[in-house]
Amino acid sequence: MLPNLSTKGRQIKMTRNSNISSKSEAETSTVAEALDQKGSNLLKNLKSAFAEFPEMVFSVSLGMVVLKSGPGKLQDVCELLKTGEQFLFNYLSCITVVDYEEQEEVFEVVYHLVSIDYHHKIAIKVSLPSSNPVVPSVLNIWKSADWFEREAHDLFGIQFDGRKNLAPLLLYEGFDGYPGRKSFPFHEYEEW
């Protein structure tokens, strides 16, 4: 669904290698513009529910609420989102890893959650230091995290705490390196 924007749109500077993640839209005026009624209700509820987690950063990106969290609080945040009555995010859609090692030396793990009952969605972004990418596993909250986490471990080398069996899923055993990372020599192919 395309967001309801005026004809002028939002002016975004298009430069190469600019600030990559959408950290800049926390002002209230653009928030109200880019979210529809359902979304702004969700944002209000989230802000009140997470009042005791002051380090949460809320932002809006193209009509979707984005929550930034640290790896330590991830389990509590996810529990609250799954069981909280106004939220009920019972469906974990996707776990993505984005490699910002060159620019900011972090790996960003993005969780997309959807609520089947209220029909809204949210994204949680967790930044991990690239020298030691460890994040607690959400397998005990949503069972669909199983293979997504194994794939993230396989392709990017992210360690997930609190679960066993991180056997290789997509690559063969004995594969050298993490192909998802930008530092992987993708263009140098070894003949088989």
């Binding site: 298009m14 430069t15 996707c94």
Partner: peptide
């Protein structure tokens, strides 16, 4: 620059695409 997540209904289920662009 920015990122976007879109869900569509493919014959098999919920097909999602997440794109991060750097301009």
């Amino acid at each position: 620059a920015g990122d976007v997540f879109v869900r569509t209904e493919s014959p098999r289920g919920d097909l999602g695409v997440y794109i991060v662009s750097d301009g």
